[in-house]
Design a protein around this nucleic acid. Structure first.
Lengths: 165, 165
DNA sequence: CGCTTACTTCAGAAATTTGTGAAGTTAAGG
DNA sequence: CCTTAACTTCACAAATTTCTGAAGTAAGCG
């Protein structure tokens, strides 16, 4: 096997994984480009890639990379790093950082709770609908409070399993 | 205040809540019509509505109701009931049933895990990327196992808080 | 049985979203 | 300072999604 054939084969394997994992993320409601970029970063050996590398692997324009990365950075799924002495940037999935971000669907929960509280007030806490919405609200509040402890347990579990890193 | 003015005011309050809660669901990735139909059901006093009532409140065609309801039923957010001696149907949010369904994002988790396992295999468990993906997989497996217990705790909590219903 | 009401399906118009090329901005390196 | 490389923004074309009206199907009722 020549070296380049080996590299091609691996590139193809990476690409297959990237596209299939991204597709699942899309199905769960994530936008296509952020999903693909995220999957690509996740499956890079360094855990980080430059804009040019992303554009090449995914066959998308610099503009598309820029948009995807902005979204991912805003939601804290990915962080941006400047390569010293260059104006090239690297985008990185930061080991732990990103499931914390996933758990920050928290922000979403918060907004749901606001909407539900308004609903209870304007429909009346004493109406059947008001009570149903109250209970829904209680569910989200419960979830939110449990989420913090759950993440704590994950960190412990992670330490045990992947400890000596 | 005339009776109809009172009803109008309330209808407006309901509608405002429906649309604002639905908007939050949409932002979290849910399709518009299912979100609006779901919000409408949630804020109805009976906890259920007919196709005609939904169409009237949301100003959408029977076709749109049909599509939304099919989706909601498939994902177990809503159940369909036949009114006895009529071919009119009622769609209902069933108290408990629906957060259980929300927790059935479980199905989504399962599919993510499949994609990730494939990734570990094809990238090699001994590569840096493979290890990163392994850890991601472990995170989801952890989440999945915790989810069941979490829902159990919710049921207990719910019983305590809304007990005597 | 046929009429009628309630829901469903489907083709296509309309609206929205997505991704691009091109122009704009910023900062490194001479 | 000027040049150039790296990223960003923006207007628009293309692709996709959404919702509707119209036609189809099924079941209650006379």
């Amino acid at each position: 096997m020549t070296e380049s054939a080996g590299r091609d084969r691996n590139e193809e394997a990476v690409s297959r994984f990237v596209e299939s994992f991204a597709a699942q993320l899309v199905e769960a409601g994530m936008q296509r480009m952020p999903a693909r970029v995220f999957a690509a970063l996740l499956s890079s050996d360094a855990g980080s890639m430059t804009s040019a590398e992303l554009g090449e692997q995914l066959r998308i324009s610099p503009a598309a990379v820029s948009g995807a990365v902005r979204y991912l950075a805003q939601t804290h799924m990915v962080s941006r790093e400047r390569e010293p002495g260059s104006r090239r940037e690297r985008y990185r999935v930061h080991g732990d950082q990103w499931y914390e971000a996933l758990a920050n669907r928290d922000a979403v929960l918060k907004r749901w709770e606001v909407a539900l509280r308004d609903g209870v007030t304007s429909l009346g806490a004493d109406t059947p609908a008001g009570r149903r919405i109250s209970e829904t609200l209680a569910f989200f509040e419960f979830m939110e409070s449990e989420l913090a402890e759950l993440m704590q347990r994950w960190r412990v579990h992670r330490e045990k399993t992947f400890g000596q890193e």
